[in-house]
């Protein structure tokens, strides 16, 4: 992003502060509330115009919930979501609707994200019609232009989704997301279901569109190699919290938080000559219904010490524009000697 652009609008396009989303669990004969799924539990980040922020983490870490909460597909439990300086999480539906054209979504499954009974023209035109932005032949022109943008033939307009392959369907979903002239597109595992060669096509398309249209992307993914390829900044989530947030080079070059390091080292490298030192995490991700006390990662962390089990570490600036939530950053003195050596290694 150029400097002048940053100065022109210093305020971030999307700002999320202390976002929480708890899903109640109903049970018992009377269907009363018996607990909560703490899917997202206090998440803050911001995205600038034309920037890609990626949310990465394993299944159940709450990354998709963040995306849907930002889109207001359901009400949030606590926190604030600001779009271009305007708070949107508490807006009534009527006032929220005009703002919807500024943020759109591309979902993971290209087969269930398009209504099988609509023609492409109607699918892509839906947001344009909703906001009364065009009609008649002008609408057809717009849909045609959008198909050009995602590199599909214009004649495809009159066909149904089932006539297209997974990659082509994902292009259709991207065209729909671009239709109302959005500033922000939330890509919820948008390339995860695609084959390698098709994935590359879609990733390149997204990067090109971003450069061309100045889009901001919230890229939600578990695929770290893809994320490294197209992102500007990365937030790593674990059990509903961000544990590390940094720009691409910092995070992938020198991963800091113990979880980030384990995550990166677990990715298989497609080069048989590289033999890496691997941090293998023991056990499974705990349930978000009953998250561990203190640091949520302490049950699997190779560097755990007493304080981790009782006190929750805060996300704080640890230099180089990096935010990390780990007690090791703050009180290295209290860390037992053996652990400190392990960290240094």
């Amino acid at each position: 992003m150029s400097n002048s652009q940053t100065q022109a609008s210093s305020r971030p396009l999307l700002e999320v502060k202390g976002l929480k989303k708890h899903f109640p669990i109903h049970g018992g004969i009377l269907g009363g509330k018996v607990g909560n799924v703490y899917a997202v539990d206090g998440v803050s980040f911001s995205i600038n115009r034309g920037e890609t922020l990626s949310l990465v983490g394993e299944s159940g870490c709450g990354k998709s919930t963040v995306g849907k909460a930002v889109l207001r597909l359901y009400p949030i439990t606590d926190g604030e979501v600001m779009l271009d300086g305007r708070r949107v999480d508490n807006l009534p539906a009527g006032e929220l609707r005009p703002l919807r054209k500024r943020m759109q979504v591309v979902f993971q499954d290209p087969f269930s994200s398009l209504n099988p009974r609509q023609r492409l023209r109607d699918i892509i035109a839906e947001p344009i019609v909703n906001f009364g932005m065009a009609s008649g032949s002008e609408l057809d022109d717009r849909v045609g232009d959008l198909l050009d943008k995602v590199r599909l033939p214009r004649e495809a307009m009159y066909r149904y989704p089932h006539e297209f392959s997974g990659g082509q369907r994902q292009r259709i979903a991207i065209a729909r997301a671009l239709a109302p002239g959005s500033d922000l597109i939330i890509c919820d595992e948008a390339v995860s279901a695609l084959d390698v060669s098709v994935k590359a096509q879609i990733v390149n398309l997204l990067s090109d569109l971003q450069d061309e249209l100045g889009l901001a992307l919230l890229f939600i993914s578990h695929d770290l190699a893809i994320v490294e390829h197209l992102t500007h900044r990365v937030a790593v989530m674990y059990l509903g919290k961000i544990v590390e947030l940094a720009d691409r080079k910092t995070l992938f070059g020198t991963p800091h938080h113990p979880y980030t390091r384990a995550l990166l080292s677990a990715v298989p490298v497609p080069d048989p000559t590289v033999k890496r030192q691997r941090i293998i995490l023991r056990g499974d991700v705990p349930s978000p219904i009953n998250p561990p006390s203190g640091c949520r990662f302490h049950t699997r962390c190779p560097f755990v010490f007493d304080r981790c089990k009782t006190e929750e570490p805060q996300l704080r600036d640890v230099g180089m524009g990096r935010m990390s939530a780990c007690h090791l950053d703050v009180v290295p003195d209290q860390v037992p000697e053996a652990n400190r050596q392990a960290v240094a290694a």
Binding site: K199, A200, K249, F252, G253
Partner: peptide
């Protein structure tokens, strides 16, 4: 296939974002 697969650590060699090879 090799070219279209993004490799971890790509940010260390390249300054900007690079294109993946498409099939």
């Amino acid at each position: 296939l090799m070219g279209s697969m993004p490799k971890l650590g790509s940010s260390l060699h390249e300054s900007g974002r690079s294109k993946l090879t498409e099939i």
